Amino acid sequence: MSKKYHSPSSVDVIRFLFSNWKVVLGIPFLVAVIVAVYSLFIPNKFKSTANLLPSQRPSFGLDLFSEDGGLSSIASSVLGGNTDETNRYIVLLSSYSTSKKIIDKFDLINVYEVNGADDEVGEAIKVLNERSTFENLEEGNFIISVLDEDPVRAKEITDYYVQLLNELNTKIVSKDARLYREFLEIRYNQLIGDLDSLQQEYIKFQKQYGVFELPEQVKEYFRLMGLLTAQQLEAEVKLQALSSTVSTSSDVYKTQKVQYEAITKKLNELYNDEDPENIILNFNSLAEVGSEYYDLFFQIEIQTEIQKFLLPLYEQAKMEEAKSLPIVSVIDEPRVALIKSEPRRSIIVIFTGISAFILVTGYMVSRFTYLQNKEFFDSLRS
């Protein structure tokens, strides 16, 4: 006949644990003591922290569009420029070149005791990355923290991180500024060449057509034409009046006719004047001359306005290339820590003791359950 399984009551379990309190409490205590002793051999690590604030980057002349920072400020606020900037800090600080410089400067291969490894630099970088943290806070500041067994070295590594961050960024920004300046320089030199060609073409046009100030010349031209036309009309009227009162062979008639013919001849000359040295324009070619004049005039005006726009940008780009500004402002400088940051021995010991107590208690409850149902488990095996 098979035995039934009986689940032990809570009271029975508590009584059993109480009767074996030396085991339930002794083993966790012993484990905690062993861990506490072991933790004493774990080297202390000290943390040094630098609190940084990103500086305003050069705008490469875009601030000319606005008194409040222009397109660069607008783009930075709309596109989340601060986040992109601090993410760039993490990329720069986590790069192989940055880690290699720190390892070489502080001899971390020997400090981290990785000499003799297949990849000494790679192993040292792994340890350095584990001990270095770069954090971008929501408030906009940037935190660099370094753990090391030597508090002075932790501070020096943190300082060197800040120095390298500024150096790398200055190099990148200077390169961007140089490329921008070179682009503006090429465009500005091209503009100067185009403007010079237009001016030479304009001078040639002036010599060819005798045009200097077309609006004033046209105005004077039509005033003169109107005056001569009025004189021609007056002479013609007088001539017709004389033809009906005096003989056509009379001196008065001949004089008036000569005057009329002289005015008519002069008008014809003015309508068809092609002498480039004469400031009086040719009426037949006035439309063509005017079109070519204004085409040259407007091209020169456009190039001049572009020059007015490009020249300040070009000068500012040269200044941006020449100056060297830090990428970050140090709000809180790293300090030599007086209190260790790791290991937290009390937490390790307490956590280990509690874990051991839970495991031992679970084992003892399982053992008590087995002893209470030994015949049942034996029947299952048989």
Rank of each mutant, 00 (worst) to 15 (best):
E288I: 11
L147S: 06
F16C: 02
L224E: 11
T49I: 15
V365S: 08
T229H: 11
R131P: 00
Q163N: 13
D118Y: 04
V37S: 10
Q231G: 00
L30Q: 01
L198V: 10
V289E: 03
G80R: 02
L62N: 09
L79R: 05
Q208R: 13
S94R: 02
L179R: 06
L168E: 14
L233Y: 11
Y5C: 07
E342L: 04
T304I: 06
S2H: 11
G81Q: 08
Y293K: 03
I348P: 06
V114G: 00
L64T: 14
V23D: 00
N129Y: 09
I350A: 12
V152A: 11
L242K: 08
Q199K: 07
E236F: 06
G116T: 13
E85K: 14
D68P: 04
Y209V: 03
N189M: 05
Q303K: 14
N87R: 13
E113A: 14
N44Y: 07
F298L: 07
K3P: 02
E234T: 12
S73G: 02
K47R: 14
I172K: 00
T304H: 00
R345W: 05
V252C: 02
N169C: 01
M1T: 10
E135L: 08
I103K: 03
D176E: 10
L179I: 12
N51I: 11
V78R: 03
G26F: 01
D378S: 05
D176C: 00
E135Q: 12
T98P: 08
L359R: 02
P312Y: 10
F29I: 13
N272D: 08
L313D: 08
S341T: 05
A337V: 11
I327D: 13
S174I: 04
F16M: 04
R88P: 03
G140F: 07
Y38K: 10
V237H: 10
S59D: 15
S174T: 03
G26A: 04
E139A: 14
T369E: 11
K238F: 08
Y89M: 07
F297W: 12
K100Y: 01
Y260Q: 12
E269C: 04
E220F: 08
E261V: 15
K4H: 10
D273H: 03
E185A: 11
L137H: 06
F18G: 15
L242Q: 09
S55R: 15
L325R: 13
K340G: 00
L311W: 13
G70D: 11
R345T: 04
S291V: 12
Q307P: 08
A356V: 01
K254Q: 08
N44M: 09
P334W: 09
L184T: 02
W21S: 14
E113G: 09
S291N: 13
S72M: 09
K254W: 01
E234S: 15
Y96N: 05
E138A: 12
F65Y: 09
S39W: 06
M319I: 15
N282M: 04
Y260V: 01
A235C: 00
V37T: 11
